[in-house]
């Protein structure tokens, strides 16, 4: 037990250091963007948030598949924890995105494929969390959630594709997204570092969240034992 606690502590400390360094890189090390200025610094935390939500939803799907195959309850717990973190980060993406877009594109929102897909993703996983809380039978609820989580994740590329087709005529705003799109080397380093830091942040949050589910589980088991 003590060893596990130590591992948590180490993980938390590493994440803390990484995120702090990421902040330093994003605000001081990286040069200001030529046209967008300092607002562009939102980018270093906006993109990693999108990345984390994507991993989180992938984990939901994977854990759902394993849960349906094995029926082991801990996979369901993992999926539930991951989905919550995914929704948290997709909300961050959806809030920081418009805040970045307003001063740069002079509009909060465009129906660009990436924006729209993020929004649909948010709707799907918010529905996922609602579904979890609306089923009274625990075992059945876990199965429903797993099925919905799998379909939701398979839906992501399909939604993206359909929206890209839908908006082909629309000029997609140029974001310093993917690699090699004229990003200064310092900026790329910063972005990569922030991606790493946020991945650690995700793992830490997931471990903490999963653990708290475990305590709830323990409590329920204890209560059940007492009643009998």
């Amino acid at each position: 037990m003590k060893n596990i606690k130590l591992t948590y502590l180490v993980l938390i400390v590493i994440t803390y250091m990484l995120v702090l360094t990421g902040l330093y890189l994003a605000f001081i090390y990286a040069p200001p963007e030529k046209t967008m200025g300092d607002v562009q610094r939102i980018f270093y935390f906006h993109v990693p948030s999108a990345w984390v939500s994507f991993i989180a939803f992938f984990v939901v799907c994977l854990a759902g598949i394993i849960f349906l195959k094995t029926g082991k309850e801990q996979w369901d717990r993992l999926a539930a924890s991951s989905a919550e973190i995914g929704v948290l980060f997709i909300v961050i993406v959806l809030i920081t995105g418009p805040l970045w877009a307003k001063p740069v594109w002079n509009t909060y929102w465009t129906w660009d494929p990436r924006l729209t897909t993020s929004f649909v993703l948010f709707l799907i996983y918010a529905a996922y969390l609602m579904l979890r809380s609306y089923v009274s039978n625990k075992e059945r609820g876990a199965r429903f959630a797993a099925v919905f989580g799998i379909i939701g994740f398979v839906d992501v590329p399909i939604v993206y594709m359909s929206i890209r087709w839908w908006r082909t005529q629309h000029p997609t705003p140029v974001i310093g997204g993917g690699s090699g799109s004229g990003l200064a080397p310092e900026m790329l380093t910063t972005l990569m570092f922030c991606l790493l830091a946020f991945t650690f942040l995700y793992i830490t949050l997931l471990v903490l969240r999963y653990q708290s589910e475990g305590v709830v589980k323990e409590f329920q088991a204890l209560k059940h034992k007492l009643q009998n």
Binding site: V120, I124, A127, M130, F148, D155, S162, W165, W166
Partner: peptide, 17 residues
């Protein structure tokens, strides 16, 4: 309430096309 909340976001591609 639950059905439309689950159904509409997932079927966006079908609705759109």
């Amino acid at each position: 309430v639950m059905l439309p909340i689950l159904l509409f976001p997932v079927s966006v591609p079908v609705i759109l096309s």
